[in-house]
Design a protein around this nucleic acid. Sequence first.
DNA 1: AGACAGGGGTAGG
DNA 2: CCTACCCCTGTC
Length: 269
Amino acid sequence: MKIKAQNFNLKETLESGQFFRYKKEGAWYYCFERDTLFKIRQSGTCIEFSGTTKDHIVRLFGLDEKYEKSLKELGRDKTLARVIRKYKGLRIMRRDPWETLISFQASIMSNIKKIKLNMELIAKAHGKKLLLDNISGHTFPKPGELKDIEKLKACSLGFRAKYIHAANNIVTDKKLKELSKKSYGQAKEELMKIPGIADKVADCICLFSLGHTQAFPVDVWIERAMQKYFKNKKAKPKDIRLFAQNRWGKNAGLAQQFIYHEARNENNP
DNA sequence: AGACAGGGGTAGG
DNA sequence: CCTACCCCTGTC
């Protein structure tokens, strides 16, 4: 199936550290989310995919968002205008909340390569096999299906295994869905009751899966970049987050994605 | 080759 | 504020 998408860059979006379960094969990205395996590629404004529905693609990549409007607003900020031009088409994804929650618990003191490995190992140990063309992988377990802590530990999660195990015992799909209807503040507060979820991880879940677009996750990259752009070397993560939300409001999350992307690219030539 | 540091933070002192 | 934390990976 083919659809048109203006102002969308598949590569920048998928490879910007918000999504971890994909395999690249030529121009195709084979993407895994919960029980679905689909493939997708882009040529200009044409998006081609198979293995899932149009609705899923539109929602997952935020193609129904008022992206142009957000960019226009952010672009008034001279500090951002340059990176927006450079990475135009980079979107905030709207992923499955449960899988997002686990991904970012796994992200603590880790790196993208290892997060991808962890997620693949969790799926392989608990999920069912999926096949599309000659690419295989596994479904992601549902909340409640990660009750064997030893099995989790075997997924190279280290100290994170206990966090994920705890989340598995607390969270349901229904509860997570409800968080998208609550306010950003309430959703974040609820998430932070779960072990292994504090400010940064909660903001990632809010932003990448619950539609709380003002969430502004502050990791070390964002911290360094914001200190540099706004010349405040002593700013602490909380100050930076509040500064950003005050400055960019509902577009703060999108601003974060651009700043993060640029910071990572500057340091990984 | 084998040791060593460090990486998308968090919780507990 | 400070530190330990599991484990993979890159580097010396």
